[in-house]
Simulated assay, not measured.
Amino acid sequence: MDEIKFICECCGEEHVSWPALTYNSPNSYHNLSDQEKEEIAVIDPDFCVIKYSDQEINRFIRCVLIQKVNDHCQDLEYGFWVSLSETSFKDYLENFDNENHETQYFGWLSNYISQYQFSNSIPTTVVTKSGNDRPEIFPHQDFDHPFVKDYYEGITKEEAEKRIREMLKN
């Protein structure tokens, strides 16, 4: 892993930057067979669409989530996929190249993080940003799940580094 060193504005010390923890696809796409991926799905770095035979269509976009790290100057960044409604997906797609498009959508987190158990998806607010940066997601604070609790309360540097090591192994 190439290390990127920088002087931290927070503490004035030299740090090595952490890699973003990214998922290459939403879980629904990952779980398809190779044949299904070719026949019913389309994916690129920012969008994924899966058209099932029963007329159900799942639409996903790639977003970022910033996890606060309480005892460190750097936060942990995730690259997640979120499912959107047809209306929200079309609006995002139509405005994808519009650097001034700022809005919010409701979405469902579509990746599962190995440190947590998931019985269902987590509701999120997807916030687009000017300048064509990837949208940022914010889990709904009233949703009872350990991931949501950790998002709002923060995690330790030790936990963040453990997650990075686990992701790099996989």
Rank of each mutant, 00 (worst) to 15 (best):
E102T: 10
C73P: 00
N111S: 07
N58E: 15
L32K: 09
W18C: 03
W81N: 00
W81S: 04
S110C: 01
S25C: 13
Q104C: 10
S33G: 02
Y52L: 15
E94H: 09
V69L: 04
Q104N: 12
V82K: 04
F96N: 08
N24I: 14
H30S: 11
K37A: 04
Y105N: 01
F60Y: 15
I50Q: 10
H72V: 02
W108Y: 09
N27M: 14
H30A: 10
N27W: 08
S33A: 03
E36Q: 15
L65H: 06
A41I: 12
I43G: 06
P26Q: 03
R59M: 13
L21I: 15
A41F: 06
F80Y: 06
R59I: 09
F106V: 14
Q104S: 14
E36L: 12
N27K: 11
S17V: 07
V49Y: 01
E77G: 02
S88T: 00
D91W: 09
F47H: 10
E99A: 09
S33M: 05
Y105D: 01
E94I: 04
Q35K: 08
Y29F: 15
E14M: 14
D34T: 01
H72C: 12
E39C: 04
D97F: 07
C11Q: 05
S114D: 12
A20W: 10
V16C: 14
I50K: 12
S83P: 00
L32H: 12
S83G: 05
E77Y: 10
G79V: 05
F106H: 13
N98H: 06
P19I: 12
Q55N: 15
R59G: 06
Y92M: 03
R62I: 00
